[in-house]
Design a protein around this nucleic acid. Structure first.
Length: 440
RNA sequence: UCCCCGAUAGCUCAACGGUAGAGCGGCUGACUGUUAAUCAGUAGGUUCCAGGUUCGAAUCCUGGUCGGGGAGCCA
């Protein structure tokens, strides 16, 4: 005995004319006298099932009437092409097996407030738009990993519990760790992935990262997923070239494979279709000049002194000047992480770049060439007020066959928000962790 | 942490200091082509909490709680 369906809705066309059993949940129901329409959702798609009183047993018709929104059931019937049906096919029902009748389902097909939806996130993920969004997230993750694998990268998993701050300054989540004191939830796998790079040449890590920053915006989560490639012998320009190929490959794959989901989300795909290398590159200095000329175009945007970091309004302004993602490179070293390689021609700036997504979605990638000289690295650690002993192993990497190398980190949720065209990052992960929400 | 906004039926909201309401959803009934059906009927309230002003507070004031939008920081 099996409860498994004999067909899935996504490839129902192959079963045209056949009798199949589907298994899923009631996404919508309309009764019209001796006729019941059930939209059944099985995870792969939705199909309308039609129950005619005269064509079925009394038990089956009663079962159809008893079904409520989100009730689970198995429905057997004949697949029939029908122009009146959304999707082109519908099921002429012959029998219904109820698994469970759902009591009044909280989420209705109408407007709901943010608080209510977040409180019901465990149910909200069933809704059509959330379903499409999370499927696009899964596609982005698969595309990113498979593209890197095909390029010869090796996945190199890095620890989540770490003994010290990778980048020192930002706030970390702390937790007691037996007799060894305090452990911190990792904010990046980068330092560890550099060790992997020296073993495999091309590696990446992928996993959740944690930032205990009290950020309360549509672009921030306290727990988010990041994919971080690292390449031996790669210089700054190689790094940018890798990033634009990587991002473009992901976008093109989502366009190819998730067109239906993008349509469900009413995403305008034209800006995505333009996302082809080369991406424009401007330096931090050029960015400051552009901001000085045009800051009045964005509310809250002000001119910057050299040495100040770009804020959200500045990123929005810069991104609005280009029709595809744009690199802003060579920031002042003082406002960037300690491990970034100085520009040999201008030591006060770092060989780093942020990739800003178009349409105001902000920074999706941060990356740099890393310092490969042990003495310089140690000096920088001291300058940043960090404890050199904590970084012995990291400095050690520069003592045994050190090579110039580069890498970057892409935030999965921000990339998903941009590609899917979602206003708020909280919808791009199944269960967002935010400053004021940890439930469900 | 700072600035701004909000909290009334299960949900989305209305009620200008004077009897708390609508739509949707639920329930009951009608309907053989519905797409968030339509029509009729019906149930449903500690107006976030505490205090204050007032003859009278959902409404005004004070404090708190919870939430939303934004900033800084970052991906």
């Amino acid at each position: 005995m099996s409860l498994l369906p004999t067909a899935t809705i996504s490839d129902i066309a192959r079963h045209n004319g056949q009798t199949v059993t589907l298994a899923g949940w009631v996404a919508h129901k309309t009764e019209k006298g001796k006729l019941v329409f059930i939209r059944l959702r099985d995870g792969s798609g939705v199909i309308q099932c039609v129950v005619f009183r005269k064509n079925v047993s009394e038990e089956t018709f009663t079962a159809a009437q008893r079904l409520t929104l989100e009730s689970s059931c198995r429905i057997t019937g004949a697949v029939r092409a029908d122009e009146r049906a959304p999707g082109g096919f519908e099921l002429d029902v012959s029998s219904i097996e109820i698994i469970q009748v759902s009591p009044e389902y909280p989420i209705q097909p109408k407007e709901h407030g943010v608080e209510f939806l977040m409180e019901h996130r465990h149910l909200w993920v069933r809704s059509a738009k959330q379903h499409a969004l999370l499927r696009i997230r899964a596609e982005i993750i698969a595309a990113a990993q498979e593209w890197l694998n095909a390029q010869g990268f090796v996945r190199f998993d890095t620890p989540i519990l770490t003994p010290c701050a990778a980048e020192g300054t930002t706030n970390l989540f702390a937790t007691p760790y037996f007799d060894l004191g305090t452990a911190y939830l990792g904010q990046t796998g980068q330092l560890y992935v550099e060790a992997g790079m020296m073993s495999f040449g091309k590696v990446y890590c992928f996993g959740p990262t944690f930032r205990a920053e009290k950020s309360k915006t549509r672009r921030h989560l306290t727990e988010f997923w990041m994919i971080e490639p690292e390449v031996a012998f790669a210089l700054h320009d190689d790094n940018l070239a890798l990033q634009e190929q990587f991002v473009s490959a992901i976008v093109q794959r989502v366009l190819e494979r998730r067109a239906d989901d993008l349509a469900t989300l009413e995403r305008d795909t034209k800006p995505l279709e333009r996302c082809i290398p080369p991406f424009p590159r401007i330096t931090y200095d050029e960015a400051l000049r552009l901001i000085a000329e045009r800051y009045s175009e964005v509310e809250g945007c002000t001119p910057l002194e050299w040495g100040e970091d770009l804020g959200a309004p500045h990123e929005t302004l810069i991104a609005s000047m280009f029709d595809r993602p744009v690199f802003v490179e060579r920031f002042p070293s003082a406002i960037k992480a300690f491990y970034m390689e100085p520009d040999p021609d201008r030591p006060e700036v770092a060989l780093c770049a942020d990739l800003l997504a178009p349409e105001g979605y902000g920074e999706i990638i941060g990356g740099s060439q890393r310092i490969h000289d042990a003495a310089l690295l140690e000096r920088r650690i001291r300058e940043y007020g960090l404890n050199v002993d904590d970084y012995r192993w990291y400095i050690d990497l520069r003592r045994y066959g050190s090579v110039p190398h580069s890498g970057f980190g892409m935030g999965i949720e921000r990339a998903t928000a941009w590609i899917a065209g979602t206003h708020h990052i909280r919808e791009t992960i199944p269960f967002p962790r935010m400053l004021y929400r940890m439930y469900p």
